[in-house]
Write a protein that binds this DNA or RNA. Sequence first.
DNA 1: CGCCTGTCTCGACGTCTGTCGAATCAGAGA
DNA 2: TCTCTGATTCGACAGACGTCGAGACAGGCG
Lengths: 125, 125
Amino acid sequence: MSKQAGSLPVIDLTADTPCCPPLAQSPVPAQTAAVLALAFKALGDPVRLQLMSMIASAKSGEACVCDLTPAFDLTGPTISHHLKTLREAGLVDAERRGTWVYYRARPAILRQLAGLLSVEPAAVA
Amino acid sequence: MSKQAGSLPVIDLTADTPCCPPLAQSPVPAQTAAVLALAFKALGDPVRLQLMSMIASAKSGEACVCDLTPAFDLTGPTISHHLKTLREAGLVDAERRGTWVYYRARPAILRQLAGLLSVEPAAVA
DNA sequence: CGCCTGTCTCGACGTCTGTCGAATCAGAGA
DNA sequence: TCTCTGATTCGACAGACGTCGAGACAGGCG
């Protein structure tokens, strides 16, 4: 990938422990925002959001590109491009098995993002 | 936006009750995805993500534009533009009081998005 | 009333993004 | 080996996006 550990703190969104407190609790530092925004941007397209949900909600835990593509009025390359975007955002993982390629969600990252957006139901302590 | 609101089911993200089940539970319909993607896209920019967190985490529950703007190396119009994007995504609310304009977060929508991204901590039943 | 400060709107500019068709790569099978 | 199918990469193009400067609007204060 493009960035190395050089100056960025390399926020690990794949970790199982929360990387950052909720958005509404303390302001997000610029560097953290840069990383997190990439994930949100990836979800900021209707096609990718649908792809993400189709993959994440697949019964077997994974979805074949051959099942994903016909669900849209888009060409194969376009779907492939969106999947690449999701992949690069760390939201999904791809694995080739024979002729087909299967995608599966990375729950840890979804949890990170959900945690970031979480708000206390009522007032805090 | 591609489609006019007329035919859209107008998913109410401001409601206090969840508009949709978690992403990982059932696939998101196209129309729903179109609406939700707008919110994620709004959060998909580092500046807006920071603005959002600064507003949401403000002690008084609201933040003045005059406090927000100097936190970035950007011009007033640019910040204003980003705030407008957040406003149009329904993520924040603006109110003018005298000379200053105050923004406050809409927790209900944050909750909707968090719920959408939520994942069962371990395996499901 | 006139001016000053704070915020937004407008128009413009360069860049990024979503989409496509054509070409390429990866395996499976005859 | 040759071919066929599935998936990705490449190159191109229109439209969207982030940013700015200039100007307009809103309200407080001499």
